[in-house]
Write a protein that binds this DNA or RNA. Structure first.
Lengths: 338, 338
DNA sequence: CTGAAAGCGCTTACAG
DNA sequence: CTGAAAGCGCTTACAG
């Protein structure tokens, strides 16, 4: 079934069928209804390739995921197979579906894959793109966003002046997240709050700055040896926390992610201390797995469904902009007021 | 950049460029190289919409996931958001990428969504399709597979004669899985082996039949009250196992999935028995979460990466066929020889 | 082996 | 408001 058959059946020209299909305003209601009825009756769907070739973009949104770093330093989950990406893909698919868009998933393992992607946009095969998983400031990403296509980036633009003027982005507010975790502990009466830093990426640093900011605003000094670094690694968090416990005096510990919180809890309990009675723990990410251990970890997290929705909703808006997703907190049993 | 520009630069016609692009055999090597060089040099990628319109299918494989049952009976995970689907999506994407295909994900929530999908195939927008998550024997699936497009179904065709003659499918061998789990326990010296059934779907029944078959082949009778049913539900498995322990005498228990194994272990330990010293446990699915509890559960599982690869590799083969994925076993600490 | 030309099924200025 | 016609960028019989 093609448009000229619909045209014949409706007693109009192909042009008019096309106008109805594309919601032109200069079609009288009576004509519109007549044509639409025939379309519905025969379940006509226009040839997407022909539409694209003639200039109307397809209802497809391309999700571009970087999996270039997959061999990088240790961590329990990494790359496009991490729960983070899997969930993000899922939420993107749902959010897109709500807008009548389908999702084409493209895992990039090589920077030259960008060529193909660009062509998809030029040729209207794809209406919009969401790009995720590249390190902050990646130039392929910034260039692509600057190209004028409907492309939005997740966690790729920094907050500096230059970035902001070229950005079209959804960012997780890791600074606010770090602050939120720390303030939560402060609100429970804690003053001697330790911190485990992740790695050296911007998001990790922002979480640390959030911690420092909350402590500073509360007027609490950072005591000696209360800040350690464990590269988002459980094992390293375990080792470093053991050292921390011997040299510092804390009643609470903010771990930049839940994986490290697992290591920290193990170290704490091995030292004969209890969570949360002796030391309260706040993590980051709100991973499912803490359902299965003794302590459901109190954890700050980014709502990935919100990120996905914001992306799909904002991808057709005019840049520049950076929209932030404010983290949320999930209260578990690993924290206690003092 | 379009094909006539490439043609001009290479000193040939558009026809020849097209022939090179499509790997026609009647192009002399010298010509091929000459044209290919220009293509590479300019990073030319053909317009996919034009190709599709002219008759060459796009390098896109559509993954069609059913999320119609999402409100069905209780279970920890269900619908397209389950780890099962998330991982499957990921492996499909990887397997497709290896063959130079991209994946368009389409979550179906309404049977009429099939219309749009069919059009994508008719119009060559999509080269192949993988359909997953529908109940066994779903007629939309069987019809679509029968339509002659490159479409393959996962776990949708039963083994009966009629199905087999119309099938193009990859199936998990749940019967073999049930047998494998039970035989594993038998090989460890167990004779009094209990069983927890999932729900009433074919896959659950097949696992049960595998159990019965293994017991039968070993010549062990099914003792009274050793088979219970818990609908893949942790809570229910907990309750039913409590009853089982009071009325039956077992040294091992095969749980049709890991979720139920969790409930069973809880019940066993509450009754003052130990896993695996008093009762060995084998689960099904090999879920990650058992990493985080006391017992890494010995578990039979389907290798989803294998399923994904088989799908992508077989989708262009001629039907009818059903290929089976034989489960694997992951040995944990929940089993012990007697 | 290769080019000129028709055709794929739409959209959209253009003319009325 | 609406139709005839050109054009989107390829592929592929057809003729040579």
């Amino acid at each position: 079934m093609k448009s000229d058959e619909i045209a014949k059946l409706a007693g109009v020209s192909r042009s008019t069928v096309s106008r109805v299909l594309n919601h032109y305003t200069n079609v009288p209601e009576a004509t519109r209804v007549k044509v639409q009825n025939v379309i519905d009756q025969y379940g006509y769907t226009p040839n997407q390739a022909a539409r694209a070739l003639a200039g109307t973009a397809n209802d497809i949104i391309e999700l571009v995921i970087a999996d270039i770093d997959s061999t990088r330093d240790s961590s329990l989950f990494r790359g496009a197979s991490s729960p983070y990406f899997l969930e993000t893909i899922y939420f993107m698919i749902n959010a897109a579906k709500e807008k009548g868009l389908m999702v084409l998933v493209n895992v990039i393992t090589n920077p030259k894959d960008f060529n193909k992607i660009r062509v998809n946009f030029q040729t209207k095969m794809i209406k919009a793109g969401i790009i995720i998983g590249f390190p902050y400031g990646n130039s392929d990403v910034t260039n692509w966003v600057a190209s004028g296509y409907n492309v939005i980036a997740v966690d790729n633009f920094t907050r500096d002046e230059i970035s902001i003027h070229n950005a079209k982005a959804i960012n997780s507010d890791n600074f606010e997240g770090g602050k939120m975790a720390t303030s939560y502990l402060i609100s429970k009466g804690h003053k001697k709050i330790g911190f485990i830093e992740g790695d050296s990426r911007l998001s990790a640093i922002e979480r640390k700055n959030g911690y420092l900011s909350a402590m500073n605003e509360a007027g609490y000094p950072i005591m000696p040896n209360t800040m350690i670094k464990a590269n988002y690694n459980e094992e390293m968090a375990y080792t470093e926390t053991k050292k921390l416990l011997k040299s510092a005096d804390i009643t609470a510990l903010f771990c930049s992610n839940d994986i490290m919180a697992m290591g920290a809890i193990k170290a704490i309990e091995e030292e004969g201390l209890r969570v949360p009675e002796d030391i309260s723990i706040v993590g980051f990410d709100n991973h499912d797995f803490s359902k299965f251990i003794k302590h459901k970890i109190t954890s700050v997290y980014i709502d990935l469904e919100e990120v996905a929705k914001k992306c799909v909703d904002s991808v057709f808006e005019e840049p520049p902009f950076i929209k932030f997703c404010i983290p949320k907190i999930s209260e578990g049993t690993s924290t206690k007021a003092i």
